[in-house]
């Protein structure tokens, strides 16, 4: 369970998160929508401790993410994140990209790490690409590799930050299919996305962010078909 309690975060003068309260249960798929600069990415990077917070708490399965005593490297094995830019490691093959962290962070043997990597890459449809270097693949393939790379750590939670936004429209579908598959397998996920159709389809709940505030959160039917908040209505009108 991810518990976010009254989280505040500023970059200099700019307050980006203005007291966020949110709980994500095990097995839940939450999508986060909202305008540019509303703090969606910042929230994800705060959840896995890549960014510090100024006030409030984020607790994952009882561990306070931002407590001094928390081993963030350990925590991040449990909370995978995939970014808009997939950040393939260019000097490693696809297989090596996925094997690296299981070997060096989890300390698995080469054979164990390889077995996991092959399984995850097969899962995302890249079984044919094991020995290819990332720069020889399309953006969609690289993004699926990044997803496999995160999954190879056997995370219990996955955070996705607009993982289709940098892709050619043609390639969006294959990545969304991968996310759908994960959702159907029961992965606990927080997906920041601009893909409204996808959000409606996979989400248990949808959260709408506006200027650092979570203006509204509801099951997709309600949020999309009967939004309560004026800003949600405006946003949805603009994106439809």
């Amino acid at each position: 369970m991810i518990e976010i309690e009254n989280v505040r975060k500023s970059f200099g003068e700019l307050e980006v998160l203005k007291g966020i309260n949110l709980t994500v249960d095990k097995g839940e798929v939450l999508t986060v929508i909202g305008g540019s600069g509303s703090g969606k990415s910042t929230l994800l990077t705060c959840i896995n401790g890549l960014e510090p917070i100024d006030a409030g708490r984020i607790v994952i399965d009882g561990t306070d993410v931002h407590a001094k005593s928390t081993n963030l490297n350990k925590l991040r094995q449990k909370v995978g994140i995939v970014f808009q830019q997939w950040n393939a490691f260019p000097h490693l093959t696809v297989l090596e990209n996925v094997m690296l962290a299981p070997r060096k962070v989890l300390g698995l043997s080469k054979a164990e790490a390889e077995a996991i990597a092959v399984r995850q890459l097969t899962h995302v449809g890249l079984a044919e690409k094991l020995s290819v270097y990332p720069n020889r693949m399309s953006g969609g393939q690289q993004q699926r590799m990044a997803i496999a790379r995160a999954l190879a750590m056997s995370p219990e939670y996955m955070l996705f930050d607009e993982v289709t936004s940098a892709l050619d429209p043609m390639l969006v579908g294959e990545v969304l299919d991968t996310l759908r598959m994960l959702a159907s397998e029961g992965m606990t996920m927080i997906c920041v996305t601009h893909e409204m159709k996808f959000a409606r389809e996979v989400s248990d709940r949808v959260a709408f962010f506006h200027q650092g505030v979570m203006a509204e959160i509801a099951p997709p039917e309600q949020l999309f078909d009967a939004p309560q908040h004026a800003e949600t209505k405006k946003f949805l009108a603009a994106t439809h």
């Binding site: 896995n48 890549l50 490297n73 350990k74 991040r76 094995q77 995978g80 994140i81 970014f83 830019q85 950040n87 490691f89 690296l100 962290a101 060096k104 962070v105 989890l106 990044a146 790379r149 995160a150 750590m153």
Partner: peptide, 21 residues
């Protein structure tokens, strides 16, 4: 790009591991 280090850190690597690997 810094995002390379960030990607490594988000896989649970220490900053030294991210640098070295």
């Amino acid at each position: 790009p810094d995002t390379q280090t960030r990607a490594g850190r988000s896989l649970g690597m220490s900053s030294l591991q991210a640098f070295r690997l």
